[in-house]
């Protein structure tokens, strides 16, 4: 890839999500015109007061804006940690939930719903902690032989995921079917509907830390994908580097899952769409996945809001929208060399 092309690519990776966030401000049941949006953005960024009705400000700045930002963060986090895990585990079928973070967070949320009756902050904290706990358990299982061979980690993740899935079923079974059970089910289907700036601050911190970390070590992921033995002889401390990737990807995914619920598909397929577009070099693939994931989730969330009168959960739409798009790309790029 030559320099001009590279600059163009990186520029579009930054502009893409910003454009999607901007478009989101107009989308919804209540129409808002371009001058109004421009005026609100101007007032907010210059900290001056607007002479517009409160309803516009609430709609554009307090409802649509945080939702779009959260969508970008969640989509980016899931996609980027999926791409990192695929490289680390040398397996294209791996997703961001491979070490059990998703099931763990799901159980944490379900438990909090039963214990605290759907107060949001305890749900975030519980989901985040159990997500982290699940990854820690997978890691400990993978360390049985004192090293952390990749295959043992995957096995550990599979075991931990299935245990937490069983625990999720158990919480559903004991939940009060009139109010708790629907909350659990809706949470598990994924949604950005609860987005407020407060949520962005709480969950955004681990997501941003995780994303920044993965972007920083992205070239090392190339080397790790050569396998432990070769990576070591190439001069890499494999234990430490694997640890950094796992911690960053877990922070990003757990941060995403705890506010949005379980959104499948993004962490598995967005990295592959990235591969078809820019190749396998993680130096380019990681930023591309980040940007594509952000755009994709904002797009899907907008569709979910406008297709029908009531919102369609994200976890349902990601696959329905993304599947055909994936097949189209597969055909037009001939799969990118697989």
């Amino acid at each position: 890839m030559n320099e001009t092309k590279k600059k163009l690519l990186y520029a579009s990776l930054v502009i893409g999500p910003l454009a999607f966030i901007f478009i989101t401000l107009f989308i919804g049941r209540y129409p808002v015109s371009i001058p109004v949006v421009a005026q609100i953005l101007w007032c907010k960024f210059t900290f001056s007061t607007c002479n517009l009705p409160d309803i516009y400000q609430t709609l554009v700045w307090d409802i649509r804006m945080p939702r779009a930002i959260l969508g970008a963060l969640v989509g980016g986090s899931l996609a980027v940690s999926g791409a990192a895990f695929q490289g680390l585990f040398r397996n294209p079928l791996v997703s961001s939930g491979i070490l059990g973070v998703t099931s763990g967070a799901g159980f944490g949320a379900a438990l909090a719903i039963i214990l605290f009756h759907a107060a949001t902050v305890p749900i975030y904290i519980s989901a985040f902690l159990f997500g982290g706990l699940a990854v820690l358990l997978s890691f400990l299982i993978g360390r049985v032989y004192n090293t952390t061979p990749v295959i043992m980690l995957v096995l550990g993740g599979t075991i931990v995921s299935s245990v937490f899935s069983a625990l999720i079923s158990f919480t559903k079974y004991v939940a009060d079917p009139t109010n708790e059970l629907p909350s659990i089910v809706f949470w598990l289907m994924g949604s950005l509907a609860s987005a407020r700036y407060q949520d962005i601050v709480i969950a955004g911190l681990p997501m941003v830390v995780g994303i920044v970390g993965l972007v920083a070590v992205r070239w090392r992921i190339n080397v790790l994908s050569m396998g432990d033995k070769e990576a070591h002889t190439l001069g890499i401390n494999t234990k430490m580097n694997k640890g950094i990737v796992i911690v960053c990807a877990t922070l990003a995914t757990a941060g995403a899952v705890c506010v949005s619920g379980i959104i499948g598909w993004v962490g598995l397929v967005i990295p592959h769409i990235g591969r078809m577009l820019v190749g396998n070099d993680n130096r380019v693939l990681i930023p591309t996945s980040l940007s594509l994931g952000a755009c994709f989730l904002i797009l899907v969330d907008n569709l979910g809001r406008i297709i029908t009168g009531s919102e369609i959960p994200l976890g349902i739409l990601t696959a329905l929208v993304g599947g055909p798009f994936f097949v189209y790309l597969l055909k037009s790029t001939k799969g990118g060399g697989w």
Binding site: N222, A231, L234, I236, G279, N280
Partner: peptide, 30 residues
């Protein structure tokens, strides 16, 4: 190595570049 297990379709250049890993810092790129 005796046989290298190929995973992702990297370009030849990207593969050879990995030989530089021991000279490149943790957060740096080539």
């Amino acid at each position: 190595p005796q046989s290298h297990e190929k995973t992702f379709p990297y370009t030849v250049r990207d593969i050879v570049l990995m030989g530089r890993a021991s000279y490149i810092g943790l957060f740096a790129s080539p």
